[in-house]
Design a protein around this nucleic acid. Structure first.
Lengths: 132, 132
DNA sequence: ATTAGTGTATTACTTACCTAATACACTATA
DNA sequence: TATAGTGTATTAGGTAAGTAATACACTAAT
């Protein structure tokens, strides 16, 4: 799996990893039961301490997206689609909530906020498609 | 001006102050040229170090919302409506941008994202009106 | 049992950030 | 020019978070 780490972005490495793996799982880039890259392998590849990888995996496990098998490795969890949608909804809700609060406090109307969202959406959505 | 500080929210005090004063200015709760509460007064009232207040004011000055008059005090800046709209747009853009990226990475459609935004908007918007 | 391969608990280091204490600098006014 | 009222530069202390080093624990296969 392709993983890109920016050591100078200010975003914690384990979060960069989480985000990318989560994305893969959410969009079926990684399939149920599929074995994840070894902690040590990934650590070596990204030139990072194994604990940093382990931390990312642990959080993903807490989210229910990943399963541990002791002494064996980590696997993409067998998540029912319902549950996946639920996780998706929760993550979406938390970020949208923040945005809404900020927008309202700025005195931005609902219409304006939606327009802005559409604009940004289109921007990244096309980029994303190009990459694929 | 009513200011509410939550010492246990994890959100830095100076940011809580910034956000509330900015909101007042953005929504005309504070008028151009109006004198802001003294650093020391506000510090005493909120039971916080004066530097914390000063820090909040400094950032607001950097945003162009506040003006210093040495030895005299701080005042709401005389900001043209254009500029106010520009600041508003920038702040909105940055937060919406984050939300959009997250949503797209979660595989959330534009329609779903907008629905979520509407929902959260209504939630807080009504609360806000009740307070006023 | 031993070995090679897994993940991780514990500990410690570093860094960034927030807050506070203190002393200083500026302005208006008497 | 003295004074009382402004804001703040500088310094220091505290805390939390991210990363890394090390040693340990588990599993499968020999």
């Amino acid at each position: 799996m392709l993983l890109e780490i920016d050591h100078h972005s200010g975003v914690p490495i384990y979060r960069q990893i989480m985000r990318q793996i989560r994305q893969q799982i959410m969009t079926d880039g990684l399939r149920h039961e599929e074995k994840l890259e070894t902690v040590r392998d990934l650590a070596a590849r990204l030139k990072v301490n194994p604990m940093t990888i382990s931390k990312a995996y642990s959080f993903l496990e807490a989210e229910g997206l990943v399963e541990r098998k002791r002494g064996v490795g980590l696997f993409v969890a067998k998540v029912p689609k319902d549950r996946l949608d639920q996780i998706r909804a929760e993550l979406l809700s938390s970020i949208i909530d923040k945005a809404a609060i900020t927008a309202i406090q700025l005195g931005v109307s609902e219409t304006e906020a939606i327009e802005s969202l559409k604009k940004h959406y289109k921007e990244y959505d096309t980029k994303n498609r190009r990459q694929k």
